[in-house]
């Protein structure tokens, strides 16, 4: 079974479309959407429509902190994110908002846990940014493998034979084996707002038979996405950062 894993789309229509188009040629059996569909970008309505459509056709989706903020509060968010959420709320209709509000925090299948941020306490949306946070999360969670987003920078953490945690930054297009007898925590990169210095949209494909994951980077029309952010009156920074992937 081949799962396309997409996280942190952030209302970036061009990036999301480019990834879906790329994935269409990759024999995908199932789409797994890892949260933060809105916020920052200029096309929240379009993106949520597509997500709802994918889910109607069998995709699974979990909620991200930006999605939760639509119907909740924006406390704890930085001012730019909070501004974007305020704008986004006005762009989404009742159906969109109810859909986002109804998404689960995590999905657990066959020992694999899909979640937006940390696995141990999903509503807290903690960041997995280093081996310490990954170790904590892996040791406390029951899942064999955890797949999450939230950080916008791809990374793979694994528990080794002596219970230590190693970190690996995946290389684009090079499949990384995730043997079943070890435990793994995979942080997907971001579709709509990469921050690892590579502006191309990032998503992953998990092959559950071969037990390996591959990260793809997909070029998209950044210019168009950025122009729309500026036209919407959202903070300039949200547009300029797309060009440098930071």
């Amino acid at each position: 079974m081949r799962l396309a894993l997409m996280a942190d789309i952030h209302a970036n229509r061009e990036a999301f479309d480019a990834c879906l188009e790329h994935a269409a040629g990759q024999r995908i059996d199932q789409y797994m959407l890892l949260g933060d569909y809105v916020g920052y970008g200029a096309d929240p309505g379009y993106v949520v429509d597509r997500i709802m459509d994918l889910c109607a056709k069998g995709a699974d989706a979990v909620i991200g902190n930006h999605d939760a903020a639509i119907s909740g509060d924006t406390r704890g968010m930085n001012p730019i994110a909070a501004t974007a959420i305020g704008w986004t709320r006005d762009q989404l209709n009742q159906t969109h908002q109810e859909f986002l509000g109804g998404l689960p925090y995590s999905i657990d299948t066959d020992g694999r846990l899909f979640v937006h941020a940390e696995a141990t306490d999903p509503p807290r949306f903690g960041y997995i940014t280093n081996t310490e946070s990954a170790a904590r999360d892996l040791h406390e969670s029951q899942a064999n493998a955890v797949f999450c987003g939230h950080v916008h920078m791809p990374a793979i953490y694994g528990i080794t034979a002596t219970e230590k945690v190693m970190r690996h930054v995946p290389v684009t297009g090079v499949p990384v084996p995730l043997p079943r007898h070890r435990r793994w925590l995979v942080v997907l990169g971001s579709v709509g707002q990469p921050r690892d210095g590579n502006p191309d949209a990032c998503y992953g494909i998990l092959d559950t038979v071969k037990c390996e994951i591959i990260f793809h980077r997909v070029a998209y029309d950044i210019e168009a996405a950025a122009q729309k952010i500026l036209a919407a009156g959202l903070p300039d920074f949200l547009a300029t950062r797309l060009f440098i992937g930071r």
Binding site: G158, T160, A161, T162, V165, M166, H168, V174, V176, P177
Partner: peptide, 11 residues
């Protein structure tokens, strides 16, 4: 150099 190094952290 493109795969996780399980040996590095281990010993």
């Amino acid at each position: 150099d493109q795969l996780p190094d399980l040996m590095a952290e281990e010993f």
